[in-house]
Design a protein around this nucleic acid. Sequence first.
DNA 1: TATGAATGAGTTTTCATTCAT
DNA 2: TATGAATGAAAACTCATTCAT
Lengths: 229, 229, 229, 229
Amino acid sequence: MSDAGAARIGGPADEVPPIADTSGIREPTTRRGARTRATLVAAARTVFERDGYLTARLSDITAEAGCSIGTFYTYFTGKDEIFAAVLEAAQDDMLHPGMPHVADDDDPAAVIEASNRAYLVAFRRNAKLMALMHQVAAVDPAFRELRRRRGRAFAERNARRIAELQQRGQADPGIDPLQASYALSGMVSRMAMDQLVGEGADLEELVTVLTRLWINGLRLTDRSGEPAR
Amino acid sequence: MSDAGAARIGGPADEVPPIADTSGIREPTTRRGARTRATLVAAARTVFERDGYLTARLSDITAEAGCSIGTFYTYFTGKDEIFAAVLEAAQDDMLHPGMPHVADDDDPAAVIEASNRAYLVAFRRNAKLMALMHQVAAVDPAFRELRRRRGRAFAERNARRIAELQQRGQADPGIDPLQASYALSGMVSRMAMDQLVGEGADLEELVTVLTRLWINGLRLTDRSGEPAR
Amino acid sequence: MSDAGAARIGGPADEVPPIADTSGIREPTTRRGARTRATLVAAARTVFERDGYLTARLSDITAEAGCSIGTFYTYFTGKDEIFAAVLEAAQDDMLHPGMPHVADDDDPAAVIEASNRAYLVAFRRNAKLMALMHQVAAVDPAFRELRRRRGRAFAERNARRIAELQQRGQADPGIDPLQASYALSGMVSRMAMDQLVGEGADLEELVTVLTRLWINGLRLTDRSGEPAR
Amino acid sequence: MSDAGAARIGGPADEVPPIADTSGIREPTTRRGARTRATLVAAARTVFERDGYLTARLSDITAEAGCSIGTFYTYFTGKDEIFAAVLEAAQDDMLHPGMPHVADDDDPAAVIEASNRAYLVAFRRNAKLMALMHQVAAVDPAFRELRRRRGRAFAERNARRIAELQQRGQADPGIDPLQASYALSGMVSRMAMDQLVGEGADLEELVTVLTRLWINGLRLTDRSGEPAR
DNA sequence: TATGAATGAGTTTTCATTCAT
DNA sequence: TATGAATGAAAACTCATTCAT
C-alpha cells in the first residue's frame, strides 16, 4: 500500500520498501493462532476506519474481534504494531491495483492515464485506510518515515521514466525529472486524498484533469513530435 | 495563514474565512490580562512546535509561559482554542507574504512565479507551524474543516483566474478550471510540506519546477499566443 | 535512620549520607499542600507497615490518606519515592536515639553498652519500619545501595574508634579495625532484626550479650590494663 | 543449604529441617519427565540468579528451559515451588561444604576456624543463590519461616557446644550460650552476605577476623586454661 | 486576575493460570 | 507428557478540568 500517489510508469512493484519489522516475533505457530491473529487484524481495520487511529482503544479492537485483551498482547506489542499489520494485510490490494501492464514503446500518454486511473481506483477502494494512514503519519514518526521512504521509491522510479522521455525528445528537457516526479505524484495523491475520501467525486473527471496536467506539465509528445493527445 | 498552498493569482486576502469562533468570550479587559494572554499564546506556539500538538500538555504551556494552570483557563477553554489563537496570531505573517502586487495585464507567467515564490517563502518562514497545522488537521475535525474551507476559497479564486486566461485564449481550454486549480494548488502545497519542513531544500529550485509545471500544465501562452517563457 | 546496626562510639551523626534525592521537585508551595503531603507520608508508613512494601498499592495509601490517586502523583512519582519520604520522616527519630554523649576518656565498655542500648531501643521503637527497610533493600537496588552507604559510614566511624583503642593498648591489636567494625556492627543489627521484629525479645538481655561479645571480641581493657568489666 | 551462617561446631547436618513440602505430588514418573523437570530446575536457577526472584517470569524460565509454559505446570504449582526445588537441588552442595570432620577433643579454636572457612567457602560458591534466598525470605513468609527454622537448628547445635565449653571452663561462663550462638552465627552470615556477594572480598581475611571475634568473644581457652591461639 | 491543589475517569500493560489439542 | 493459545484481574499512571483562596 502506498500513499505515494503517482502515475507509476512501468517498473516492478517489489522495489517498494516493506512496511514494518514485524519479522518473525510473535508469529502464531498453530492454525488456531493464525486465525485469531487474522481476526484481530480485520477487527483493527474496522475499528480504526470507524473511530480513527487515536480514538480507537485496544479494548474496542478486541471486543470487535471477540477475544480478550490478553489475546491482543499475544500477537502485538501495541496499537502501532497492529496498525502496521493492517497496512501489511491491505498492501496486496494496493500493490496490484489492476494496472494494465503496458509495453515501453506504447503511447506514453496512455500509460500515464492508465496508471493514474489504476492508482485512483485502488485509492478509492481503500479510501478510509488511506486517510487513516495519513492521520497516523501525522502522529507517529515511524509511520511518517515509512511513508517518506515509499514516496521516494515511487518518485525515483517515475523520475527514471521521465528522464527516458526527455532523452528521446518526448518531454520538456528543462525540467528536473526527480523534482517533477515528486511534484506530479504529490499532485495526484493529494487530489485523491482531498476528493476521494468521504465525498464521492467523479473518478473519471479526476483521471482526465490529472492526466492532462501530467502530459501538459511534461510537454509530452508522441514519437512524431506532436503533442500527446 | 493557509495551507491551501497555491499560487494566489491576485485577489484580496480577506476573502479568507476566519480561523475560529473565539467570539468575544474571555477576552482580557485589563492591560495586564492582554499581556498574560499574549504570553500564553507565544508559549503555546513554542511548545506546540517543539512537542507537537498531541504531545503538548497544557501544563507544559503554562510552564513555558511562567504562569499557573488556572490562569490558562482564564483565557482559553482548552488546547484547541489556544491552538486557534496561535494560528490567528501567525495569520498576519502568512497573509501578507510580501507578494508583489501584480497588475492583471502583466505577464501571467511572472505572476504565477511570483505567487509561488511568495507562498513558499512564507511557508518556509513558518514551516514548523505549517507542519503543526497539518498534524492538527489530521486529528481534529474542526481544524480539518477550517483547512478545507480555506483551500476551497483559494482554489475558487485561482479557478476564476484560470477561466479568464482560458477565455482570452491563453490557457488550455480542455481543462476544468476548478479541478485544475485544486490540483495545481495541491501540488504546490504538498511540495512545500514535503520539502520545506525539516530539510533545507533549495527554494528557488522548487519555484522553478513548480512554476514550469503550472505553466506547462495550463499550456499558458502570452498575449501573442507564444508559449509563456 | 539506619540499619547500620552498630555501637556508635562517639562521632557526629551528620556524617550519614542523605536518604534520597527528593530535592526540591514537587515540593508543595502552600500550607495546604504541605499538609496533604505529610498526610500521604503518614498514610504510606501505616500501609507499608501493615501490608509490606510490595503488597501495598498506591490506592491503599491514598485511601488511607483520604485523597485521590491524582493527589498522590502531585507529590510523588511512585511507590519508591514515597517510601524514601517515609524513611526521611522517620530519620530524625532514628538518628537521635537518645544516645548519651560520652566523653572520650570514659569507660569504653560503658560507651559501648550505652550505644548498643540506644541503637536497640531506637530499633525496637521503629521495628516495623526497619523490617520494611530490610525488605525494600532486598528488592530495590537503589535502597540496597543507600543501605550499603549508610552501613559503610557507621562502620568507618566505629573502625576509627577501635583503632584508637588499639593504639592506646586497650584493644586486641591483632584485629583489623574496619573488618571488626563491620562484623560487630552487623552482629548487632542482625540480632536486632531477628529478635526485635515481631517477637518481644528481652531487650536488656540482648544488650548484655551483645555488649559482652563486643568487649570480649575486642579484648577491651580499661586504662589499668584490666579486662573491661 | 542454609543461611544460618555459623560456625557449625560438629554435629550431623541432617538435623536441618527440610526445605519444603514438595510431597510426592507431581513427581515425574517416566525418565523423560525426570529429565524435563531437572531442566526446568536448572533453568530456574539460572533465571532467578540473573533476574532476581520477583522479576523472573515463569515464561522466562520455560524459555530458558526450552519448553512450554504448559509443561511448567506439569511439575510445579508456581514460582515458589520451583524456587524450593532450586534450593533443594543446591542443598547437597551447601550441606557438605567440605568441612573437615574434627574430633570433639581437638583444639576448639581450630574447629571454629575450620567451620567458619567451610561455611564461607560454600557460601561464596553459591553466593548468588544465597543472595537470592535472602531476597525471597524478605518477600515470602513461607521462606522466611524456613530460614528461621534452619537458623534456629544451627544456633541450638552451636549453643550446646558452647555450653559444653563453658562447663569445661574453656569459655566465658557469663554469656548466654543460645544468644551468643545466635549473635556469632548471625555475625558470620551477615559478613558473608555483605562481603561475598558481588564483590570479591578476601576470604581468608574474613576467616581470620571472624574466627578471632568468635574466640575472643567466647573468651575461649585451651585445656590448659591459656587463651586459645 | 492569579494560583496551584485536588480530582478521577480512562487506558495500557503484565503475567500467572487454565485448558483444549 | 507436551503444547501454546486464551484469559482477565489487577495496578500504575496521565492530565484536562474544577475550584477554593
